[in-house]
Design a protein around this nucleic acid. Structure first.
Lengths: 234, 234
DNA sequence: TATGACACGAATCTCGAGATTTTATCGCAA
DNA sequence: TTGCGATAAAATCTCGAGATTCGTGTCATA
């Protein structure tokens, strides 16, 4: 049904191959922003970027307009497009909203999740764990990002609010960009696997209180690792 | 500062005149969708609509791409654009999220709002009241919509989370479309002014509990009036 | 009657060029 | 040196035409 596809673009990864040049450019630019090759605040000159991505100007403009949905690009009339800027305050805000929405969705999933939900969580955690063991020798960060997202999505998969999932997805992508900053800067070493395990075990035990708390700590640690990086007024 | 403009497009009304044809078309199409002239689910044929709005095809495509941010338009590769469909379930979801986010933001505003916040609320309520008195003889629905939004925005103006305001703005616009349906269908008559007054008085008394409860009831009544219109499984 | 291939029409997608606006440069005067 | 205005360069915005894909109706065949 059409309605079920409503929020796909913003929430899922490129699970399907792009069918048009616009979609392809959208995915490429999005990745370049999240992984920092397009710097926060940078001006996006269509006339230059169209060569970089090998497409026409109008096509690229449409792709950039699409990126407004994810709040990764901002546009101002007659002044073109910019990569959305970042700030400690913004990250704090994102963290605050993620805690609010993701713990809410997790509680609901724990309350309403069926066997299929459990199975999805177990599968996603298993795949993520495999990657995290290998991540000691940082093999494939992109694979880890993919599976980390899949794990977080599986946790809230039984939440019946499309809008809540939609917004969580946008916020997740935002924090992905900040997290990438922390990674390349070799910030505070975290035992991320430990954090994931705590969430996982509590969720399967249907212990909503413990699971929510663990998830909240997990989300807040991303903020802390960046905040320590840039000591600023919080 | 650039960052402060980040969420303007989706949250505020056309407070500034559109500087480009894209922005103008964006506003026009958005209004046509919200006010029902473009029917939910309808296919948006660029080749036809470009004449209706008197612009080129590429320009219109960019405007439609922008409307994805508001989730009022959906796009599917090689199959063009559609007006976002509506459903009772979707409205229920929107209502649920509005209650969650707006009451949260209202509590924070009541806790942190200063004199300026109070003044803004008083002013917005006054203007809205004037319009609502006249609305007995439904003079200007569009003016009422404008001031209703302004009042709701003023209530949460002291919320320091840009992301929360951003999401509330998107959800508000969504429910605007549903509310328009209820109006043209002459649904259950409500004493909206009464509801607004309750919220207003409790907010100024800094009674967060009463104010939140009144706001929640207020939001839920929009759902009820539509839900009665289309008796369906809720 | 049902099924499937095929072709035609329509719509989407894409590009390059031209018009308009913004931004940078340079010279001149205070 | 600093400020200001005109000129030039660059970038955005816009449009119309062409290439590709999708949907539909027709027709032959089992």
């Amino acid at each position: 049904m059409m309605h079920s596809q409503k929020f796909k673009a913003a929430f899922t990864d490129a699970d399907e191959a792009p069918r048009t040049l616009v979609e392809g450019a959208y995915l490429q630019v999005r990745r370049d922003i999240i992984e920092g090759r397009l710097v926060p605040g940078e001006k996006l000159r269509v006339e230059h970027l169209k060569d970089r991505y090998g497409i026409g100007a109008g096509t690229l403009r449409e792709a950039l307009a699409l990126l407004l949905s994810d709040a990764l690009v901002i546009a101002e009339g007659q002044r073109g497009f910019h990569v959305a800027p970042i700030s400690v305050r913004d990250l704090k805000d994102i963290t605050h909203m993620r805690v609010l929405l993701e713990t809410h969705a997790l509680r609901q999933s724990i309350a309403k999740g069926d066997d299929e939900w459990e199975a999805g969580v177990v599968a996603a955690f298993h795949k993520l764990s495999n990657t995290e063991e290998r991540l000691g020798h940082i093999s494939n960060v992109r694979e880890w990002e993919q599976r980390n997202r899949a794990f977080h999505e599986s946790l809230i998969a039984a939440c019946d609010s499309r809008w809540e999932c939609y917004m969580i997805g946008i916020l997740y992508r935002q924090s992905e960009r900040y997290r990438h900053l922390a990674i390349v800067s070799k910030a505070v070493p975290r035992n991320v696997h430990n954090e994931h395990t705590k969430i996982f075990e509590a969720a399967l035990k249907r212990d909503a209180e413990t699971a929510s708390h663990a998830l909240e700590q997990h989300i807040r640690l991303t903020f802390d690792s960046i905040n320590l990086l840039v000591p600023e007024l919080s």
